[in-house]
Amino acid sequence: MIHAQARLRVVATLAPFAPGDSISFPRLQKLLDMTAGNLSTHLRKLEDAGYVGVTKTHEGRVPATYVALTPAGRRAFEAYTEQLRALLG
């Protein structure tokens, strides 16, 4: 699930954040250089898989969306990374 290229990029960008920290949708979009629609689609799939948590909130009257890996997402990424390293020796 993670291994699909675009979703790997999303998860790999979220992984370095400390648990408890999250990033706004626009900032994440800029880091990934993706269109909003593209990123939305990938985030939805990752959310459905339980790997990403999306929090919608309000700052004053402006809606804001924040994204972070879930503990399950973190574990899946670490397992995947270990697998890759094992494959490459």
Binding site: H3, A4, Q5, A6, R7, L8, R9, A12, T13, L14, A15, P16, F17, I23, R27, L31, L32, N38, T41, H42, T81, L84, R85, L87, L88
Partner: peptide, 28 residues
């Protein structure tokens, strides 16, 4: 959704992507 988005990269390419995105995250 670009078709290429769903392709699985080979292990070396995947690790390269992970490293590149780690650096990107460093911008935060």
């Amino acid at each position: 959704n670009d078709q290429r988005d769903d392709l699985a990269p080979d292990p070396a390419a995947a690790l390269a992507i992970i490293e590149q995105q780690r650096r990107q995250a460093g911008l935060t």
